[in-house]
Design a protein around this nucleic acid. Structure first.
Lengths: 371, 371
DNA sequence: GTGTGTTTTGAATCCAGTT
DNA sequence: AAACTGGATTCAAAACACA
């Protein structure tokens, strides 16, 4: 097929010709060549427009492999906004009236995408937070760990009736309603595709678990899912596995090659195999600081060791000052008092309530019960 | 005070007059009456119900005057964008060059706020997800549970140096770096303010735990924190408790009343509880040469890298000569040995005392203890 | 194979003070 | 103003190495 925009009046090519293929070329041109109102879902992971300055090293002096690819370079917000407007309106044209779109991004670009979605008349259904269980830390200690990315799920219009498999998502979530925050690990290990040198084939490969949840929740088997920034084809691989049809668009030949091979090796699951690997539910960690933030303990309040020998005062940042001016976490101060190498502060300290000592662990239990 | 915009050339009123008060009136007018570059932090939770009535003007500057005033979706976004632009630029003017701003919103408005922040030259530092531990479920089962809201933390410019209490936040999070996703319960129970009928006093009262984390992390005691959409004064209550100064602006008298009473009952914590964990960066610098001058290390003495691979000799001027005849500071020689771009010599080198390797950092600690 | 310790790595707008 | 330099800074998971 050609990548030329459709001429006015020319019959749009049938969708069947491009079903379950990867089209080469610019995604706007390719989308413009497809028939309007023909696609059930669009999943788009466009360049984020990161603006990285110098190099970044980890504390052990190793260099961080940055996303410095040419396709992520834009001269200004104006240029990026035009790009966003153009590909979104091309996507909008080919979407069925009851179709939906997902976009994913970070704070660098997601606000601009969200605003443009709204400007074009898309109707936002949810924003979804992908909370990474193993994000890259902030090595210089100058910011918060950038531990999430944002997805936006939107229908073509306010009155549309997009597919939403409520019960399937509820089942995925151990029987309770699926929330707008999804805890999933980043793509590593065997799932992460490598090139012939053993380097990562694509700098920003998304985990299949993310696409799995998107496709299970917002498409049906047989639906057509289009990904205009196909990369190494995670969308296509998961779509094939789940019995959905995909259309990929990708400019870079190297990515297309990797994706083609990858998808060829995917086998469609039998229906019974659609059971999902659930993220293990470990006992969630509760930082002591949360008791302070939540007002369960007040800064300045006295804590008492359960053995009755020591006291310490709570500070606003969740650390303690012991009566010997020893500062640190509940564990550190406890250990210092006991001259022990370590100490479980949760079982060491108590607060006073109506004159009685109550272990602070009770407060932790309370928080866990809410989670 | 009056709410008129400041006339050109008129002296801006001193900030002291409004410190720890709640100003009535339109937040844009009040902010315009304050001196520029005077506020350390702005926390803003703007309305986004698109029924802003008197607060809003159409793009052609005609006033939107009634609840049932009909405007189409495009109009309403344009109106909201203008409102956002106006209050953000008023906020920008009064912010100190190294000040910062937090805004909070949901998918209805946060993308527009984020884009406008960037357009005005604010520099996004993080977006933060407030993950609600007890959100309202989606009753109709047509969407995901809307279980989070988004905050954006931004400095006034790319080159600004905003306050960030890295160690304090790390302490709040049980010793690991604070992430961009914050799990906190919504505001309920005793904390939720009620009116005389027992109904909630404000529809979107934010939890104090959220403000606690914001203020501990990005302000210092004595800073000035302004909240242009004060509501029932959560920002003021937490600011007072944590020894920060606040300026509230609120147009609704009922909210001002509730907030005034609420804040009056708050007691400032004593200074000891307000002290938070300090970064090493805050500690005084000790030149390595001082160890030599003070005779803690002798010129000619051998140093050993803690990894056991390299040695170097101390020279009288506090530089080293490595075994490869590489000369320079403790950092430079360490970096040369490791072929690394940089090296912290304090943690790289050790001297021998009674046959045992002792990190030279111990000697620095000793000096700092005397200071 | 099994268990244990070490190394590697991930969409990152990641320094501050002095000369 | 630009260049230099001291020195502060990381978490989880998987791969890998080795006993």
């Amino acid at each position: 097929m050609t990548n030329k925009p459709v001429k006015k009046g020319a019959p749009a090519p049938s969708l069947d010709a491009v079903l379950n293929t990867i089209q080469s070329g610019d995604c706007i041109e390719v989308m413009n060549s497809l028939p309007e109102n023909s696609v059930d879902l669009i999943f788009a992971d466009p360049p984020y427009n990161l603006q990285l300055k110098g190099e970044l090293h980890r504390p052990d002096n190793s260099k961080v492999d940055a996303v410095d690819d040419h396709w992520d370079q834009f001269d200004s917000f104006a240029v990026y906004d035009r790009f966003t407007r153009d590909w979104l309106s091309a996507a909008r044209r080919i979407l069925k009236p009851n179709g939906a779109i997902w976009v994913i991004g970070s704070y660098h670009n997601v606000f601009r995408m969200g605003a443009e979605l709204q400007n074009q008349g898309f109707w936002i259904l949810n924003d979804v937070v992908w909370r990474k269980s193993n994000p890259m830390p902030n090595f210089r200690g100058k910011r918060l760990t950038n531990a999430h990315e944002t997805l936006i799920w939107a229908s073509k219009s306010e009155s549309a009736k997009p597919t939403f498999n409520y019960e399937a998502l509820k089942a995925l979530n151990e029987g309770v309603q699926m929330r707008s925050d999804w805890v999933l690990p980043i793509c590593t290990g065997h799932e992460r595709l490598k090139d012939e040198n053993g380097d990562k084939a694509h700098p920003t490969q998304k985990p299949e678990s993310l696409l799995h949840r998107v496709l299970i929740g917002t498409t049906n088997p047989g639906d057509v899912v289009l990904d205009p920034f196909f990369g190494t084809g995670t969308t296509g691989a998961v779509a094939k596995m789940l019995g959905r049809n995909f259309i990929g668009i990708e400019r870079e030949e190297t990515y297309r090659k990797v994706a083609t091979k990858r998808i060829k090796n995917v086998r469609k699951l039998d229906n019974e195999a659609l059971e999902v690997s659930q993220s293990k539910r470990a006992q969630p960690r509760v930082p002591f600081g949360q008791l302070v933030e939540r007002g369960m303990l007040r800064p300045g309040e006295e804590l008492y060791s359960l053995n009755g020998r020591h006291t310490a005062k709570v500070r606003a940042d969740g650390t303690l000052v012991g009566s010997k001016d020893n500062k640190g976490s509940i564990h550190q101060v406890g250990a210092a008092f006991e001259g022990a190498p370590s100490c479980n502060g949760w079982t060491y300290w108590a607060y006073k309530s109506e004159g009685k000592k109550v272990p602070i662990d009770n407060l932790r239990q309370q928080i866990r019960a809410e989670m």
